[in-house]
Design a protein around this nucleic acid. Structure first.
Lengths: 258, 258
DNA sequence: ACCTGTGAAATCGTTCACAGCG
DNA sequence: CGCTGTGAACGATTTCACAGGT
């Protein structure tokens, strides 16, 4: 099944580049830290270094927002905090629901970084009846049956999926049907959603695999040998495959108590 | 990237584009699923759809690895699983340590997706003495004092940081000094590392902020913009600048500086 | 007929370098 | 002067479209 559409379909608006949007939260965090230290202004150089990017990129990024700096001086910290917050939509309240309260869901519920921005955890939802009513991060977990009601009662438009991979698509569909239009997916699976719904995914094992790739390359640089070990599987041999080996892998769900 | 310099300038002919590397785990997951269903071959079209990308991209990606397909037929699933695993370095064992066993660290320790690939959780480390010895995901938590010894005894080269932001840089430095050269950072802070050390970060609140940006934009497209609270901070000088809009102007949605 | 592999074109993103303003 | 804002050069990535096997 499936022609999976997973990305925002390029709206016609003359918008801010996606790469820039992805860095705004980074700038915002650096600015917030400066603000807390009552620093009045920063140069692109200083702010860039605090955010871990280079100054040309930062200036270019800001140029998409408007001309908020002062030549010869830099940027006004407070003003920029406000402008970026507004651009990101953080000046309004975003109720979110977290579905799947396993280890990861609980970690998310407890994560301070949510509440500190405009995000408010409106509800925690889990399919396990044994979880219902249990308080996690000070919020009573509700049963999945309530999902639609919770979404509409709270005007939730952002949902976080932290369920096992097997349930993710189903949960996703219910969220979307109930009105959610943005989803943050922690389950290691590709979600198929209708046009107009945004999905971002966070996959822990993918990140590790990317690191392993680079790690392997580093190791290979020291030892030049270009070995070509014989593959355990022959190239286009055309033999029908037997069952896959032991209970290896299978992309275990996104976190569940062992 | 933390400080100014990072990334290799694609010196070798062996250089696979970073964007491609980032998708290999996705392909691998889709292939593994096919393998478990004993599907012998897939076309680029089928596999692409299972992985959530388009087929041209997938073919281009695979072309960087070599010519592993058969024209008129498609790709041999088992063979491709092996080739990608090897390319990613998953045919070897990668011991990892997780530092910071709070909610998130525990979730990571329990995450099946790690063990199912070449990753093995070699140790769980926490600075809280009260945690020492406690079993999490079947592994006894060890005290941070043991960090260096654990790294070297186990030949760990990949570390996962799940500590509070305040401790992350310090932990990072100890990991690096002890020999770790790849770090997956969950703490919401920019890590500064020496050359040769890779850092990937996963920031939950950043993902939500990006969603909020798009969510806000969606809302602005339907309903006419409504002016909200006046900026709590006035622009630096009394002079309010106009927004210099690069390119055309005209159909930008709601949010804009007056 | 079908599907891969890949140059070439189009698009997107980053960096350079400097004009212009405070 | 110092620092922003930005065209223009550059580089990376995606998409097109079709040549070339099977």
């Amino acid at each position: 099944m499936a022609t999976g559409r997973t990305h925002r379909p390029a709206t016609r608006s003359r918008g801010i580049p996606e790469a820039t949007v992805a860095r705004l939260p980074l700038y915002l965090r650096a600015l917030t830290a400066l603000s807390e230290r009552s620093v009045p202004t920063v140069s692109s150089e200083e702010l860039a270094s605090a955010a871990g990017v280079n100054s040309a990129k930062l200036r270019k990024d800001f140029s998409y927002l408007g001309s908020y700096g002062t030549r010869g001086v830099g940027y006004d910290v407070e003003y920029l905090v406000y402008q970026i917050s507004r651009e990101l939509g953080l000046t309004q309240d975003w109720p979110v629901v977290i579905v799947g309260i396993g280890n990861l869901g609980a970690a998310l519920a407890n994560y301070g970084g949510f509440a500190s921005r405009g995000f408010r955890v409106a509800a925690l939802i889990d399919a396990d009846p044994a979880m219902s009513g249990k308080p996690v991060a000070g919020i009573a977990v509700q049963h999945a049956d309530e999902l639609e009601k919770i979404i509409s009662d709270n005007g939730v438009s952002i949902g976080v999926i932290a369920t096992p991979a097997g349930s993710a698509q189903q949960v996703c569909e219910r969220l979307v049907a109930a009105g959610v239009t943005s989803i943050l997916n922690f389950a290691p699976t590709v979600l198929t959603v209708p046009d107009g719904v945004d999905v971002r995914k966070v996959d822990l094992s993918i990140e590790l695999q990317i690191l392993a790739f680079h790690e392997q390359r580093k190791a290979g640089e020291e030892a030049p040998p270009e070995e070509e070990t014989a593959p355990p599987v022959a190239p286009p041999a055309a033999t029908v495959k037997k069952r896959t080996d032991p209970g290896s892998d299978g992309d275990v769900p996104a976190v569940m108590p062992a």
